[in-house]
Design a protein around this nucleic acid. Structure first.
Length: 463
RNA sequence: GUGGCUAUAGCUCAGUCGGUAGAGCGCCUGGUUGUGGUCCAGGAGGUCGCCGGUUCAAGCCCGGUUAGCCACCCCA
């Protein structure tokens, strides 16, 4: 068989990259649990009609089909959306389904974290995958959900990402907006296609203000005056409550003030104020943040890595009021999702973060000759019994080759079992630190490597 | 789904006017007779993505195809 080529969009890390990814996952999980989020996992598949809910028909869902299915079966079963299965596209929609399914057994407000792979049938690119890991936190309430959770959730994410700073992850900036502000402002202007306007405004960074103004007039039927107002709103950003005053003044100058706008401004102001106190410099109000997903109804969030803005958002989310609803009860929620694969791929490709080694092994026990392999195995067992990860040399090659074996894997220590001299007296075991070359007598029942060498560590690259 | 670019050794890439394939790094062996890394010498490794066409002759030109990358769309 010819050597297989990698499948684009389905990332696979080498062992040292996996060490980095697992560290990221551990830090996220630890932070989520510190804040009281319970971990859950949902199945990988959902009925297709669940995945293609209103406004999400453009999503490119991978559909499941059994090879054994015959044409007749497909005609009967696979074509019915309520029977067909698709791989989940994100973790929010499956979570909403899970909440409805288990509503009677959950305690509300329910806080959960969920770290799983998701699949999207889109064209892959740098930082864009068809199979990737998301790490979500959400809070849902029964019937209602206090606004303060919209303040707290992004701050949990800020803390989680901040906890990765010491391994080389860049600073993050969480950009926030509020759907009520945008909707209130646009409706106050007389623009009723709020979705359409948001979609055009979202392109601002890529195509520039002039092109957006043209699109607003051509596609959304805005007047030049209305388009100008939309662009002025999108131009407002800042990390303090001054932005609220500026939006209010802008709306006033266009006679676009509405109750909805005022509600949104109060919420956005509260978020900015709390964030400035609890995570100074991280959260920035940015009135051009739109978000494509239509189920958001309040706060919306996007997160960029400072210096890597072109990568796009690595952590997004928002408030949704009707995602989980069975007709009788609704469970409003707010949540954010970290794109773990997008983050990790950049950490590795940009050489920001590195693992000290790709194998767990701290010590390689050399084998003098195959007759003495049992002696080496005994040393390994003694070290392992005290929690030290050990490997035994695969062959009784020349010691130079055995040292090289360790060196290529980043194993810091090579252990030489004592050998009998000419007088048949067995000498002491020795352990060599192959980085410094230092070698000294050692006893496998008591010797311990330095703490920082015991396991692979994740560190800023270049250290 | 649309558009552009690319495809040669394990990796990064060169390859002139069309004349049967190159470098660096990595790997293996030896120098060093059982303690690596440096250095020196030697060696292995290629269906030039695939199919077809033009030509005496194609890695190179033409057509197709597949895959990858980038941009758009959308998004983590």
């Amino acid at each position: 068989m010819a050597r297989p080529t990698p499948l684009s969009g389905f990332p696979e890390w080498l062992p040292d990259g996996r060490v980095v990814e697992q560290h990221v996952l551990e830090v996220l999980r630890h932070t989520f649990e510190l804040h009281g989020f319970a971990g859950i996992e949902t199945r990988a598949v959902e009925p297709l009609d669940q995945l293609l809910r209103k406004g999400e028909t453009s999503k490119e869902v991978y559909v499941l089909r059994r090879l054994q299915d015959e044409d007749g079966d497909q005609a009967r079963g696979d074509q019915r959306p309520d029977k067909q299965l698709g791989l989940h596209f994100d973790l929010t929609v499956p979570f909403a389904r899970y909440v409805l399914e288990n509503a009677g057994r959950l305690a509300f407000p329910f806080k959960r974290y969920q770290i799983q792979k998701v699949w999207r049938g889109e064209r892959p690119q740098d930082g864009r995958f068809r199979e990737f890991v998301q790490a979500d936190i959400d809070v849902v309430g029964a019937g209602e959900l206090p606004y303060h959770y919209e303040v707290e959730l992004p701050l949990v994410m800020a803390e989680a990402l901040g906890a990765l700073r010491d391994v080389g992850v860049p600073e993050v900036r969480i950009l926030v907006n509020n759907r009520k502000v945008a909707e209130g402002f646009y409706r106050g202007l007389g623009l009723d296609d709020v979705e359409g306007v948001l979609r055009q405004v979202d392109k601002l960074d890529k195509i520039g203000p002039d092109a957006v103004a043209e699109l607003l007039q051509a596609e959304q039927g805005a007047t030049p005056e209305q388009a100008k107002a939309c662009l002025e709103l999108a131009g407002i950003s800042g990390a303090d409550t001054g932005v609220i005053d500026r939006v209010r003044a802008l709306a006033g100058s266009y006679g676009a003030g509405t109750d909805l706008l005022e509600t949104g401004l109060a919420e956005l102001g509260a978020l900015v104020e709390a964030a400035a106190r609890r995570a100074p410099g991280v959260v920035v109000a940015d009135l051009k943040i739109a978000r494509g997903l239509d189920y958001y109804t309040g706060s919306v969030y996007e997160t960029v890595l400072v210096g890597h803005e072109q990568l796009g958002s690595i952590c997004s989310g928002g408030r949704y009021d009707t995602l989980a609803s069975d007709g009788k009860n609704t469970y409003p929620g707010v949540g954010l999702s970290i794109g773990v694969s997008r983050l990790v791929s950049r950490l590795l490709s940009a050489g920001l973060v590195t693992a000290t080694r790709g194998v767990p092994t701290a010590v390689l026990v050399a084998v003098a000759d195959e007759e003495h392999r049992a002696q080496s195995d005994a040393v390994a067992a003694a070290l392992r019994s005290r929690g030290i990860p050990v490997d035994v040399a695969p062959a009784a090659a020349k010691f130079g080759k055995q040292i090289k074996f360790a060196d290529r894997r980043g194993i810091p220590f090579v252990w030489f079992p004592g050998q009998a001299g000419e007088d048949d007296v067995v000498g002491p075991d020795q352990v060599k630190d192959i980085r410094s070359g230092e070698q000294k007598d050692a006893d496998a029942s008591v010797w311990t490597p330095p703490e920082q060498d015991l396991r692979p560590r994740v560190v800023p690259a270049g250290e």
